[in-house]
Simulated assay, not measured.
Amino acid sequence: MPPRRCPCGSGLPYDGCCGPLHAGERAAATAEQLMRSRYSAFAVGDPSYLLATWHPTTRPRDLELDPGTRWTGLQVVSTAGGGMLAAEGTVEFVARYVHDGAAGEQRERSRFVREGGAWRYVDAT
């Protein structure tokens, strides 16, 4: 059986892409990589990773994922900043899903900051 493709759309196997980030084996190197790994966490149902990568000033106390939502695709529209040496960045994306049989999409521009060497999701518009 071939390895499962990563939900983030990189084309890589999950175990060679977002899987090691979800397992805590390494951290995201860029804001875009963190955003892609967070999308994948929604897709594979990993709320603990989402909370761990959320900035403490905006992080909710807990997070329940909707079992009626299946994430079906990610398109990165643009990035600003967020590189390996940057302190902040934004990533605009479209995330597609099916919820209770109806297709939809979430368009978002997410803001990220690097603190203590780790990227954190702050908020979105």
Rank of each mutant, 00 (worst) to 15 (best):
V113W: 05
E32A: 04
Y97F: 15
L51R: 13
G116T: 13
M84G: 03
A118H: 10
R114F: 12
G11K: 15
G68S: 12
H99L: 11
A41W: 07
Q75C: 03
G89N: 01
G73S: 04
G68P: 00
V94D: 14
V76N: 01
T69Q: 06
C8H: 12
A86P: 06
P3K: 15
Q106S: 15
E88I: 02
E32D: 02
C6A: 13
S78I: 05
R59F: 10
A95Y: 06
L74S: 08
H99Q: 08
V113H: 09
P56Y: 07
P13N: 06
F42D: 03
V94C: 06
A52Q: 14
F42C: 01
A41K: 00
A95T: 11
R5C: 09
M35N: 03
F112Q: 11
E108Y: 03
A52W: 12
R114N: 07
L21N: 15
Y39N: 10
L65I: 14
R109E: 06
G104I: 13
G16W: 01
A103R: 06
R120S: 06
S78G: 02
G101M: 11
V122G: 06
R109N: 07
G117C: 10
A29H: 13
H55S: 02
T79S: 02
A27G: 04
R61H: 01
G11H: 15
E25K: 15
G82C: 00
L34C: 05
Y14S: 13
G73R: 07
L74H: 02
R36M: 09
Q106G: 03
G82E: 01
V122R: 11
E115F: 12
H55P: 05
F42Q: 02
Y49K: 08
Q33V: 02
R4N: 12
R36F: 08
A31I: 10
L65N: 03
T69A: 13
V76H: 10
T125K: 15
E25C: 12
G83C: 09
A31K: 00
E115K: 05
V77E: 06
A29E: 15
V94P: 09
V98P: 05
T69R: 12
A86H: 00
P47E: 09
L34N: 03
A29G: 14
M84C: 09
L74M: 08
A52P: 02
G11V: 13
A118E: 14
M35L: 15
